[in-house]
């Protein structure tokens, strides 16, 4: 891969030096860590068999997660349209474009869980904070894709519609929308699937859904129920991915 031997060995030395530095500077409790294998064995033995007896709690958590994902995807999909239009340099005036791009960068940089905890502080515990978090993440994701698609589309089709004397909204629905609609729907469906995955974690900071239940089982050492929840989440994510692929396949 790297032809120059000096560079290759130099990189190797650098890597070793980095390892030494990073491992040395981390505050690692080695005695605690060394018990890891033994503890892992104990935890895993406590996990089996998974305990599905509290299924009503499980079903309630999962339903809440799915509902959060559905609501957030739908709202996010709609709000992403104005944001995406504003963030496309070939449509929006410069100041609006810069503001929209700024918002997109800002929301994309922060992890969902950070956004979730801020919303929990503003709106209190519960699914509202979770829905809002997922809405922000969805708008950011879909909006960015939409803006890029609009910037990459053929400007000539738009020019032709403009030349007929059509107003800006009509230029949007005839000159822009047909070019970007299939991918917009595809990205939105993909985001639904991503939201289902993320809805399982925002609960860990108290923003509703199955994550809240999962986090509680870990603090109570309730590992057989933890495994039941984890298996359910894996099943749910699998279903979500399957559904998303199916719909996207149908969108040609």
């Amino acid at each position: 891969m790297i032809e120059n031997p000096l560079l290759r060995h130099g990189l190797l030395v650098l890597a070793v030096m980095y390892l030494a530095w990073s491992l040395g500077s981390l505050e690692i409790d080695w005695s605690r860590t060394s018990q890891g294998a033994e503890r892992a064995g104990r935890i895993f033995s406590r996990m089996f068999p998974p305990d599905f007896s509290r299924w009503s709690l499980l079903v309630r958590g999962v339903t809440e997660s799915v509902e959060m994902a559905l609501a957030a995807s739908f709202i996010g999909m709609i709000l992403a349209i104005p944001v995406g239009l504003c963030a496309a340099s070939n449509i929006a005036p410069r100041p609006i474009y810069l503001a929209a791009r700024g918002i997109l960068v800002l929301t994309r940089t922060f992890h969902e869980v950070i956004i979730a905890i801020l919303f929990v502080k503003i709106f209190g515990f519960g699914p509202l904070a979770g829905v809002l978090t997922l809405v922000v993440a969805s708008v950011s994701f879909i909006g960015k894709m939409l803006a890029e698609d609009i910037e990459n589309m053929g400007s000539q089709q738009m020019e032709a519609i403009r030349a007929t004397g059509a107003s800006f909204p009509k230029v949007l629905i005839y000159g822009v929308m047909p070019q970007i609609l299939p991918r917009y729907l595809g990205v939105s469906i993909y985001r639904l699937d991503a939201n289902i995955r993320h809805s399982t974690v925002v609960g860990i900071v108290g923003a509703g859904g199955i994550g809240q239940t999962l986090s509680a089982t870990f603090s109570r050492y309730d590992y057989d129920f933890s495994l039941a929840i984890l298996l359910t989440i894996i099943g749910l994510v699998f279903l979500g991915e399957f559904f998303s692929n199916w719909v996207r396949g149908r969108l040609r």
Binding site: Q156, Q157, Q179
Partner: peptide, 17 residues
């Protein structure tokens, strides 16, 4: 513009319509 029809070199049709 409504009173001025325009025809383009690359046709500029909306391809998906």
């Amino acid at each position: 513009r409504r009173r001025m029809g325009m025809i383009f070199q690359e046709y500029n049709l909306v391809e998906r319509l």
